[in-house]
Nucleic acid binder design. Structure first.
Lengths: 218, 218
DNA sequence: TGCGAATGTATACCCAGTGCAGAAAAAGTC
DNA sequence: GACTTTTTCTGCACTGGGTATACATTCGCA
């Protein structure tokens, strides 16, 4: 009769709490002193955990930061899979991205909560963190490749080509927004420009680089 | 009167020789035992150089391998800048890439000299090396962005969008070829497929993902 | 021949990440 | 509530990449 609920059990709950405790201690220290200026030992100490335990929760120092973006690795693939039956994949992605901008979803780079902006800035300024982010891009490419291949009636190679273009463009849009907000722009102020650039990007994806097909370009 | 020629001088020549000596010793050891199984100390010893000197020539262990690909960082940008006045940027890139395939240029992934294939395989199998390669992609994107912006009469953001798509597609093509050769396929055997995929990729770049604009895909 | 600048070396150090053996704590058992 | 089993945490020692410093060597040049 010890537990009437079917909760995860003390062990699981404690693990969860330790995980967030380490992550929060880490980000707080990193934001205050810079990623490279803080050692994992200091993070472990601040989180009141042994160094060895920290590495049991996070495989590398960089992951203390970038694990917060890990959820979005599968996002593009999911959007494509879950789209209405009468909607084209690219259209579903476009709608979803524009919706993200409107909701100020952090994955679009268009959220100016101070904590988020500071995080953007730190990642952009730290090569090791940027490098780690590329891993997510590779994962997103794979997810999107599979989704396109399986639901859009297109060959695997064509799906991969489309996926790498889409992911690269998404990343460019997000980076552009994040850089502008990191430079001090407000999200509301940036919103119109972000929408316009997103529309431009999706038009380019849909219609190709036709303008570059002419000698002079335009 | 010590030197009648305008050669680089002994100091420069010695530096050059040390550089290649270290690089060759490194790659030989890495190919034999694996990148992660060889320490930089072992490389330094094999090159008859101190560890500290090695790091004066190569900023990181990974660079002992990937510096061989560094030349090609500016290639796409250069091709666009040097194109004939009456040729579109995308067309210039397409021609150049197809020519690279025909010449079995290693940057296309379609060179099956044993030493090259072994190098491909090692890079593909070693995450740290792949990660380092992404840095070149970022450089190539920047070069191509500038070239497109300055010579194709297109805005900087549009140029960047085009550049990231082109670089991503190129990388995909190269990776695909390299993987196949690493798996044992011969270059001559692969050639036709490589050309066909390249044409498909450039058609996609030029005309867009139109096929994905329809609900069913095709 | 000798002097200044660049380059190479030895040594000692910091930090990220891992292996291992044992302590602590939660979970299941009676 | 005491006992055992299993998981997690910890301390310690070690490898390996990368850097700082201080000193030796070598080259360029007059």
């Amino acid at each position: 009769m010890a537990s009437v609920t079917s909760e995860p059990g003390l062990r699981e709950r404690k693990k969860q709490r330790t995980h967030t405790a380490i992550s929060e201690a880490a980000i707080e220290l990193f934001l205050r002193h810079g990623f490279d200026q803080v050692s994992v030992s200091q993070v472990a100490e601040a989180a009141e955990v042994s160094r060895r335990t920290l590495f049991a929760y996070f495989p590398a120092k960089e992951d203390l930061v970038v694990h917060r973006f890990a959820d979005h690795e599968a996002e593009a693939g999911r959007v494509v899979r879950d789209r209405p039956a009468d909607m084209a994949p690219l259209e579903a992605l476009r709608v979803h991205y524009l919706d993200g901008l409107a909701r100020r979803d952090p994955v679009t780079g268009l959220n100016d909560l101070p904590a988020i902006v500071a995080l953007y800035r730190m990642v952009l300024e730290t090569p090791a963190l940027v490098a780690r982010m590329y891993r997510f891009q590779a994962g997103a490419e794979q997810e999107l490749t599979d989704a396109l291949h399986e639901t859009a009636g297109v060959g695997e190679f064509a799906a991969r080509l489309a996926a790498v273009q889409i992911v690269a463009v998404h990343w460019t849009l997000t980076l552009d927004n994040a850089r502008r907000l990191a430079a001090g722009e407000a999200a509301d102020e940036r919103y119109a420009g972000a929408v316009s650039e997103a529309e431009q990007a999706y038009a380019l994806l849909a219609n190709g680089l036709g303008r570059l097909g002419a000698p002079g370009g335009a």
